[in-house]
Measured scan of single mutants.
Amino acid sequence: TTFVALYDYESRTETDLSFKKGERLQIVNNTEGDWWLAHSLSTGQTGYIPSNYVAPS
């Protein structure tokens, strides 16, 4: 499932994924509650993102 970032997010830990508003993200795993494992289609990096910062594209 592809989502789009609603806001900028700066990672707080090394497992988080930083992203910019408008960036497209492929969700890898969304069974972890409020933090989803995502892959950035812009940077190619993978990490955890706050689910309330993204919406379906």
Rank of each mutant, 00 (worst) to 15 (best):
E32W: 08
G33V: 13
T13W: 11
Y48C: 04
L6H: 03
G44C: 04
S11V: 02
Y53C: 15
T13C: 09
Y53N: 15
N29K: 14
L37E: 12
W36I: 12
G47Q: 00
L37W: 14
F3K: 05
L17E: 01
Y9K: 08
H39S: 13
W36N: 04
V28S: 05
R12D: 03
V4E: 15
N30Q: 03
V4R: 11
L37V: 10
T1E: 10
Y7L: 14
V28E: 14
V4S: 01
T46P: 02
F3Q: 01
S11T: 04
R24M: 14
A5D: 00
R12V: 12
G44S: 06
W35N: 10
Y7M: 12
S18N: 07
T15Q: 13
Q26Y: 10
T43D: 12
I49F: 02
N29F: 05
P50I: 03
T31L: 10
N52S: 14
N52T: 13
Y53K: 13
H39E: 11
T15A: 08
Y7V: 09
L37Q: 12
G47T: 00
V54A: 03
L6D: 06
S18C: 05
N52R: 14
V28Q: 15
L37Y: 11
S11F: 01
S51K: 13
E32I: 12
Y48Q: 08
Y48T: 06
P50D: 04
I27C: 14
V4A: 07
S42F: 08
E32V: 11
T2Q: 06
D16R: 09
F3A: 11
D16Y: 03
G22T: 01
G44D: 13
R24E: 15
Y9Q: 04
V4M: 12
T43L: 02
E10D: 03
S40C: 04
G47F: 00
G22V: 00
L6C: 04
P50M: 02
V54C: 07
G47C: 00
Q45A: 13
G22D: 09
S18T: 07
A5S: 07
V54S: 02
V28A: 13
N30D: 02
W35L: 13
V54K: 01
P56L: 07
N30E: 09
Y9E: 01
E14C: 12
D34Q: 10
E14Q: 11
N29L: 09
T15W: 06
A38S: 03
F3E: 09
I49S: 00
W35M: 07
W36K: 11
P50S: 04
S51I: 04
G22L: 02
N29C: 14
I27L: 07
K20F: 13
G22W: 03
E32Q: 15
T15V: 08
S42H: 02
N30A: 07
T1I: 15
E23W: 00
K21W: 00
H39W: 10
S57A: 05
K20Y: 05
T31M: 08
I49L: 10
P50N: 03
K20M: 06
H39C: 12
S18A: 10
S42V: 11
E14F: 05
L41I: 06
W35H: 15
